[in-house]
Simulated scan of single mutants.
Amino acid sequence: MKGKLYIVATPIGNLEDITLRALKTLKEVDVIACEDTRVTRKLLSKYDIEKPLVSYHEHNEQQKARELISLLESGKNIAVVSDSGTPGISDPGYRIVTLASQKGIEVIPVPGPCAAIAALSVSGLPTARFAFFGFLPKSAKKRKEFLESIREYPETLVFYESPNRILETLKDIIEVLGDRNISISRELTKVFEESLKGKASCVLETLRQRQSIKGEITVVVEGKHHEETDLGQEVERELKECREKGLSLKEAVQTVSKELGISKNLVYRKALTVWQKQSRA
Protein backbone atom coordinates (compact mmCIF):
# COMPACT_ATOMS: atom_id res chain seq x y z
CA MET A 1 0.00 0.00 0.00
CA LYS A 2 1.37 3.42 -1.00
CA GLY A 3 2.08 6.06 1.58
CA LYS A 4 0.60 9.56 1.65
CA LEU A 5 2.31 12.87 0.95
CA TYR A 6 1.41 15.74 3.28
CA ILE A 7 2.15 19.35 2.30
CA VAL A 8 2.43 21.02 5.68
CA ALA A 9 2.45 24.78 6.24
CA THR A 10 4.69 25.99 9.06
CA PRO A 11 5.07 29.37 10.84
CA ILE A 12 6.55 32.33 8.95
CA GLY A 13 8.06 33.75 12.12
CA ASN A 14 6.10 33.15 15.30
CA LEU A 15 6.38 29.44 16.14
CA GLU A 16 3.02 29.56 17.92
CA ASP A 17 1.27 29.98 14.56
CA ILE A 18 1.51 26.29 13.73
CA THR A 19 -1.84 24.47 13.62
CA LEU A 20 -2.84 21.55 15.84
CA ARG A 21 -3.36 19.45 12.71
CA ALA A 22 0.13 20.29 11.43
CA LEU A 23 1.66 19.16 14.75
CA LYS A 24 -0.37 15.93 14.67
CA THR A 25 0.74 15.24 11.10
CA LEU A 26 4.42 15.89 11.85
CA LYS A 27 4.24 13.53 14.83
CA GLU A 28 2.65 10.73 12.81
CA VAL A 29 4.52 10.69 9.48
CA ASP A 30 7.57 8.47 8.91
CA VAL A 31 9.81 11.12 7.32
CA ILE A 32 9.87 14.91 7.12
CA ALA A 33 11.37 16.51 4.00
CA CYS A 34 12.56 20.04 4.71
CA GLU A 35 14.58 22.90 3.20
CA ASP A 36 17.03 23.45 6.04
CA THR A 37 17.22 20.73 8.68
CA ARG A 38 18.47 23.25 11.27
CA VAL A 39 15.40 25.46 10.86
CA THR A 40 12.95 22.56 10.94
CA ARG A 41 14.70 20.93 13.89
CA LYS A 42 14.19 24.12 15.88
CA LEU A 43 10.44 23.96 15.26
CA LEU A 44 10.23 20.23 16.02
CA SER A 45 12.27 20.66 19.19
CA LYS A 46 9.83 23.25 20.54
CA TYR A 47 7.02 20.71 20.26
CA ASP A 48 9.04 17.62 21.28
CA ILE A 49 8.82 15.94 17.89
CA GLU A 50 11.57 13.57 16.78
CA LYS A 51 11.47 12.32 13.21
CA PRO A 52 14.01 11.49 10.48
CA LEU A 53 14.69 14.60 8.38
CA VAL A 54 15.58 14.65 4.70
CA SER A 55 17.06 17.78 3.14
CA TYR A 56 14.84 18.88 0.24
CA HIS A 57 15.61 22.29 -1.30
CA GLU A 58 15.78 24.06 -4.66
CA HIS A 59 19.30 22.77 -5.42
CA ASN A 60 18.50 19.07 -4.97
CA GLU A 61 14.75 19.09 -5.56
CA GLN A 62 14.70 17.02 -8.75
CA GLN A 63 16.91 14.24 -7.38
CA LYS A 64 15.35 14.17 -3.91
CA ALA A 65 11.82 14.19 -5.32
CA ARG A 66 12.50 10.85 -7.02
CA GLU A 67 14.00 9.39 -3.83
CA LEU A 68 11.01 10.54 -1.78
CA ILE A 69 8.61 9.05 -4.33
CA SER A 70 10.36 5.69 -3.87
CA LEU A 71 9.80 5.92 -0.12
CA LEU A 72 6.13 6.79 -0.66
CA GLU A 73 5.69 3.83 -3.02
CA SER A 74 7.17 1.58 -0.34
CA GLY A 75 4.41 2.67 2.06
CA LYS A 76 6.11 5.49 3.98
CA ASN A 77 4.11 8.61 4.85
CA ILE A 78 6.03 11.84 4.22
CA ALA A 79 5.48 15.45 5.25
CA VAL A 80 7.02 18.23 3.17
CA VAL A 81 7.74 21.50 4.95
CA SER A 82 9.60 24.66 3.94
CA ASP A 83 11.64 26.93 6.21
CA SER A 84 8.53 29.08 6.61
CA GLY A 85 5.05 29.22 5.18
CA THR A 86 3.43 26.88 2.69
CA PRO A 87 5.60 24.52 0.59
CA GLY A 88 5.32 25.11 -3.14
CA ILE A 89 4.47 28.80 -2.77
CA SER A 90 7.77 30.32 -3.93
CA ASP A 91 9.43 27.38 -2.15
CA PRO A 92 10.33 23.79 -3.09
CA GLY A 93 7.38 21.43 -3.28
CA TYR A 94 5.63 21.47 -6.61
CA ARG A 95 7.91 18.91 -8.29
CA ILE A 96 7.27 16.20 -5.74
CA VAL A 97 3.55 17.00 -5.77
CA THR A 98 3.54 16.61 -9.56
CA LEU A 99 5.43 13.31 -9.44
CA ALA A 100 3.26 11.97 -6.63
CA SER A 101 0.10 12.82 -8.55
CA GLN A 102 1.46 11.09 -11.65
CA LYS A 103 2.23 7.97 -9.59
CA GLY A 104 -1.25 7.85 -8.06
CA ILE A 105 -0.01 8.82 -4.60
CA GLU A 106 -2.47 10.77 -2.45
CA VAL A 107 -1.36 14.34 -1.76
CA ILE A 108 -2.94 16.01 1.27
CA PRO A 109 -2.66 19.72 2.10
CA VAL A 110 -2.30 20.76 5.73
CA PRO A 111 -2.97 24.50 5.40
CA GLY A 112 -1.59 27.27 7.53
CA PRO A 113 0.64 30.36 7.35
CA CYS A 114 1.54 32.04 4.06
CA ALA A 115 3.30 35.43 3.96
CA ALA A 116 1.55 36.48 0.74
CA ILE A 117 -1.93 35.90 2.18
CA ALA A 118 -1.04 37.43 5.54
CA ALA A 119 0.29 40.59 3.87
CA LEU A 120 -2.71 40.81 1.54
CA SER A 121 -5.13 40.48 4.46
CA VAL A 122 -3.72 43.59 6.19
CA SER A 123 -2.99 45.62 3.05
CA GLY A 124 -6.31 47.43 2.87
CA LEU A 125 -6.34 46.74 -0.89
CA PRO A 126 -9.00 44.68 -2.74
CA THR A 127 -8.77 40.97 -1.95
CA ALA A 128 -11.57 39.49 -4.09
CA ARG A 129 -9.14 39.06 -7.00
CA PHE A 130 -5.37 39.06 -6.74
CA ALA A 131 -2.34 37.75 -8.63
CA PHE A 132 0.75 36.37 -6.89
CA PHE A 133 4.12 36.40 -8.65
CA GLY A 134 6.66 35.17 -6.09
CA PHE A 135 10.01 36.97 -6.26
CA LEU A 136 10.53 39.59 -8.96
CA PRO A 137 13.58 39.22 -11.27
CA LYS A 138 16.86 40.38 -9.73
CA SER A 139 18.03 42.14 -12.91
CA ALA A 140 16.73 45.72 -13.20
CA LYS A 141 16.08 45.28 -16.92
CA LYS A 142 14.16 42.03 -16.51
CA ARG A 143 12.31 43.40 -13.49
CA LYS A 144 11.04 46.39 -15.49
CA GLU A 145 10.08 44.14 -18.38
CA PHE A 146 8.12 41.90 -16.03
CA LEU A 147 6.35 44.84 -14.39
CA GLU A 148 5.48 46.11 -17.86
CA SER A 149 3.92 42.73 -18.67
CA ILE A 150 1.54 42.97 -15.68
CA ARG A 151 0.87 46.73 -15.88
CA GLU A 152 -2.68 46.26 -17.23
CA TYR A 153 -3.74 43.70 -14.62
CA PRO A 154 -6.83 44.93 -12.71
CA GLU A 155 -6.15 42.46 -9.90
CA THR A 156 -4.23 43.38 -6.75
CA LEU A 157 -0.59 42.37 -7.31
CA VAL A 158 1.40 40.46 -4.68
CA PHE A 159 5.08 39.53 -4.74
CA TYR A 160 8.11 39.00 -2.53
CA GLU A 161 11.26 41.10 -2.47
CA SER A 162 14.53 41.13 -0.57
CA PRO A 163 15.47 44.08 1.66
CA ASN A 164 18.54 44.67 -0.53
CA ARG A 165 16.45 45.36 -3.64
CA ILE A 166 13.28 46.91 -2.22
CA LEU A 167 14.27 50.54 -2.89
CA GLU A 168 15.14 49.85 -6.53
CA THR A 169 11.98 47.79 -6.94
CA LEU A 170 9.81 50.59 -5.58
CA LYS A 171 11.41 53.02 -8.01
CA ASP A 172 10.67 50.60 -10.84
CA ILE A 173 7.07 50.21 -9.68
CA ILE A 174 6.58 53.98 -9.76
CA GLU A 175 8.22 54.26 -13.16
CA VAL A 176 6.41 51.35 -14.82
CA LEU A 177 3.10 50.99 -12.96
CA GLY A 178 2.70 54.56 -11.76
CA ASP A 179 2.42 55.92 -8.24
CA ARG A 180 -0.16 53.42 -7.03
CA ASN A 181 -1.34 52.61 -3.53
CA ILE A 182 0.77 49.86 -2.02
CA SER A 183 1.34 48.00 1.23
CA ILE A 184 4.71 46.65 2.25
CA SER A 185 4.84 44.08 5.05
CA ARG A 186 8.13 43.20 6.69
CA GLU A 187 9.04 40.67 9.38
CA LEU A 188 5.46 39.39 9.55
CA THR A 189 4.50 37.71 12.88
CA LYS A 190 7.91 38.59 14.35
CA VAL A 191 8.88 41.08 17.07
CA PHE A 192 9.59 43.91 14.62
CA GLU A 193 6.63 43.26 12.32
CA GLU A 194 5.73 46.28 10.23
CA SER A 195 3.37 47.25 7.40
CA LEU A 196 3.79 50.52 5.51
CA LYS A 197 0.87 51.74 3.42
CA GLY A 198 0.21 54.61 1.03
CA LYS A 199 1.39 55.81 -2.35
CA ALA A 200 4.49 54.01 -3.59
CA SER A 201 6.41 57.30 -3.61
CA CYS A 202 5.59 57.95 0.06
CA VAL A 203 6.60 54.44 1.13
CA LEU A 204 9.81 54.77 -0.88
CA GLU A 205 10.66 58.05 0.82
CA THR A 206 10.03 56.52 4.26
CA LEU A 207 12.37 53.61 3.56
CA ARG A 208 15.03 55.85 2.01
CA GLN A 209 15.42 57.64 5.34
CA ARG A 210 16.43 54.45 7.14
CA GLN A 211 20.01 53.39 7.64
CA SER A 212 19.16 49.77 6.89
CA ILE A 213 16.20 47.60 5.93
CA LYS A 214 15.98 44.07 7.27
CA GLY A 215 13.72 41.06 6.83
CA GLU A 216 11.96 39.47 3.87
CA ILE A 217 9.35 41.75 2.39
CA THR A 218 5.94 41.17 0.84
CA VAL A 219 4.77 43.88 -1.54
CA VAL A 220 1.07 44.37 -2.33
CA VAL A 221 0.17 46.77 -5.15
CA GLU A 222 -3.27 47.93 -6.26
CA GLY A 223 -4.31 46.80 -9.72
CA LYS A 224 -4.97 49.07 -12.64
CA HIS A 225 -8.20 51.06 -12.38
CA HIS A 226 -10.56 51.94 -15.20
CA GLU A 227 -9.79 55.58 -14.46
CA GLU A 228 -6.19 54.84 -15.46
CA THR A 229 -7.43 53.66 -18.84
CA ASP A 230 -9.37 56.90 -19.21
CA LEU A 231 -6.24 58.82 -18.26
CA GLY A 232 -4.26 56.89 -20.86
CA GLN A 233 -6.75 57.92 -23.50
CA GLU A 234 -6.48 61.53 -22.38
CA VAL A 235 -2.69 61.38 -22.56
CA GLU A 236 -2.90 59.99 -26.08
CA ARG A 237 -5.26 62.77 -27.19
CA GLU A 238 -2.99 65.45 -25.74
CA LEU A 239 0.07 63.93 -27.40
CA LYS A 240 -1.64 63.79 -30.78
CA GLU A 241 -2.54 67.47 -30.47
CA CYS A 242 1.07 68.31 -29.59
CA ARG A 243 2.32 66.40 -32.63
CA GLU A 244 -0.16 68.17 -34.88
CA LYS A 245 1.13 71.48 -33.54
CA GLY A 246 4.63 70.49 -34.62
CA LEU A 247 6.14 69.75 -31.21
CA SER A 248 8.93 67.19 -31.00
CA LEU A 249 8.43 64.00 -29.02
CA LYS A 250 10.53 65.37 -26.15
CA GLU A 251 8.64 68.67 -26.09
CA ALA A 252 5.30 66.88 -26.21
CA VAL A 253 6.25 64.64 -23.27
CA GLN A 254 7.30 67.62 -21.17
CA THR A 255 4.12 69.54 -22.04
CA VAL A 256 1.65 66.72 -21.37
CA SER A 257 3.45 65.58 -18.22
CA LYS A 258 3.25 69.10 -16.80
CA GLU A 259 -0.37 69.72 -17.83
CA LEU A 260 -1.70 66.42 -16.45
CA GLY A 261 0.68 66.17 -13.51
CA ILE A 262 1.87 62.64 -14.24
CA SER A 263 5.21 60.89 -14.65
CA LYS A 264 7.29 61.76 -17.72
CA ASN A 265 8.21 58.09 -18.06
CA LEU A 266 4.54 57.09 -18.40
CA VAL A 267 3.90 59.85 -20.93
CA TYR A 268 7.07 58.95 -22.85
CA ARG A 269 5.97 55.32 -23.34
CA LYS A 270 2.61 56.49 -24.66
CA ALA A 271 4.34 59.08 -26.86
CA LEU A 272 6.49 56.41 -28.52
CA THR A 273 3.34 54.54 -29.50
CA VAL A 274 1.66 57.69 -30.82
CA TRP A 275 4.70 58.74 -32.84
CA GLN A 276 5.09 55.24 -34.31
CA LYS A 277 1.42 55.13 -35.34
CA GLN A 278 1.61 58.58 -36.91
CA SER A 279 4.81 57.68 -38.78
CA ARG A 280 3.14 54.63 -40.34
CA ALA A 281 0.00 56.60 -41.27
Rank of each mutant, 00 (worst) to 15 (best):
A118Y: 12
I217V: 12
S90M: 05
E28T: 14
R280Y: 13
L72A: 05
G112P: 03
L5R: 01
R151W: 03
L272Y: 03
I117F: 10
I69P: 02
G261A: 04
N60H: 03
E234M: 14
L157T: 02
T169R: 08
A281F: 05
R151K: 14
S55N: 06
L157S: 00
T156C: 01
P126Y: 12
S183T: 15
E148S: 12
V203N: 06
K103L: 00
V220F: 03
S257T: 08
L23Q: 05
C34K: 06
I105L: 03
G261I: 10
I18H: 03
S212D: 12
I184A: 08
R237S: 10
R210L: 14
P109M: 04
L43Q: 00
H59C: 03
N181A: 07
I78W: 01
A65L: 01
Q276S: 14
A33D: 10
E161W: 01
L272F: 14
L249V: 15
V203W: 02
E50V: 13
V39P: 09
L147P: 06
D91K: 14
A9M: 13
L72M: 01
E61S: 05
T127R: 11
L20Y: 06
I150W: 07
T19W: 01
P111T: 05
V8S: 08
I182E: 10
F146Y: 15
S279F: 15
V81I: 11
E187F: 04
C34V: 09
A281H: 07
R237A: 13
V220S: 02
R180E: 04
L43H: 01
G85F: 02
A65F: 00
I49Y: 00
G88N: 15
R210I: 09
E106K: 00
R243Q: 08
E227Y: 02
L44M: 11
S123G: 12
F135M: 05
T40S: 15
A9V: 11
R165V: 04
A118K: 03
Y268S: 04
R95A: 12
G75N: 04
F133T: 12
R269P: 09
R129G: 02
K190F: 07
I108P: 00
S201I: 13
E152W: 06
S263F: 03
C34S: 06
R129C: 03
K258Q: 15
V176E: 15
R280K: 14
L125Y: 10
S121F: 07
I89T: 09
L231K: 12
C242V: 06
L204R: 08
P87V: 14
C202W: 13
L170T: 04
K224E: 06
E227R: 06
P111F: 07
H59E: 08
L157N: 03
E67I: 04
K224P: 02
I108W: 01
E148Q: 14
K250E: 14
S84H: 05
